[in-house]
């Protein structure tokens, strides 16, 4: 606590911060659950276990499950390239990594429709081989990948920049090969940041609406993800259904925050215990 702040300043700031959180976050979150249970637990359960909901849940989790590991691979490769090598286009790479944050997700969706839609050469060629991308699961996975790929790289780049490459060089002169260096020296140092990036990427993958909405085609039971399903139910005036499904997303969000906090706690402990050099 700082010395100079009068008590009333402290109370005012705390009240504003908590009040804002209450109005903007806690109340809406509570409203989601209240609305979801407006017609009782039975109605809630029926909506949550509705085949269309389960199908949307499956698709959402599939997209996230594919996007997350690819994200880790791409993020590691990008962070490694950006921090360990000096090459032409390095700053361009770092800038491009941020692109998905800068453009509207709708554009991301449209890019894939323009590139892989059934009337485009590439999409037609894939269609000829029986592979549907747009209005099908591959398109949803692609859109999800696009919007999530900065997360891991952005967590890793500053960390790896700060850590430098002395440790890796030490491992190499001691005779370690590339894989040993990565597995024994690099990975243990960036593990927590990597998981942190994955948690954030996963949260975004589950919640993504805009990009996925463009490529999905909204086919109920087939190409609907959870956020899209919420919108459909809401537009059909099925507010209990919409809120019941929304409550699933809210639960994912809470789980994400919990995991993030647990990890931050561990990161802090690791830093306090290991502030070497």
């Amino acid at each position: 606590m700082r010395g100079g702040d009068a008590a009333w300043v402290r109370y005012l700031l705390i009240t504003i911060a908590l009040g804002f959180l209450g109005v903007m976050l806690v109340a809406p979150l509570a409203a989601v659950f209240i609305e979801a249970f407006a017609k009782g637990a039975g109605a809630y359960w029926r909506n949550v276990t509705d085949p269309a909901t389960l199908s949307a849940l499956r698709l959402t989790l599939t997209a996230a499950a594919i996007a997350a590991p690819l994200n880790a691979v791409f993020g590691l490769a990008a962070a490694w390239a950006a921090t360990r090598f000096d090459f032409k286009g390095r700053s361009l790479l770092i800038t491009l990594i941020d692109l998905p944050f800068a453009v509207s997700p709708v554009i991301a969706g449209l890019i894939y429709v323009a590139l892989l839609g059934s009337r485009t050469p590439l999409g037609g060629w894939l269609g000829g081989m029986g592979i549907e991308v747009i209005f099908a699961t591959p398109g949803i996975v692609l859109a999800t990948l696009f919007v999530t790929f900065p997360f891991v790289a952005r967590e890793l780049i500053p960390l790896m920049q700060e850590q430098g490459s002395d440790d890796e060089q030490a491992a190499v002169v001691l005779g370690a090969d590339g894989w040993q260096t990565f597995r024994l020296v690099t990975l243990p140092r960036i593990r927590l940041a990597l998981v942190y990036g994955l948690i954030l990427a996963n949260a975004r993958a589950i919640g993504e609406f805009g990009a996925v909405s463009v490529v999905s085609g909204h086919i109920r039971g087939l190409t609907n993800t959870l956020p899209l399903h919420v919108e459909i139910l809401y537009n059909e005036y099925n507010s209990v259904g919409a809120f019941a499904v929304a409550s699933l997303l809210a639960l994912f969000a809470l789980a994400t925050i919990g995991a993030k906090n647990a990890l931050e706690w561990r990161l802090r402990r690791a830093r306090e215990g290991g502030n070497g050099q």
Partner: peptide, 18 residues
């Protein structure tokens, strides 16, 4: 590439996770 030499770095470069 490595020449099988012993190298001691200015800032030690000890593996902090070990």
């Amino acid at each position: 590439g490595p020449r099988h030499v012993g190298f001691v770095f200015q800032h030690y470069a000890l593996f902090r996770t070990m």
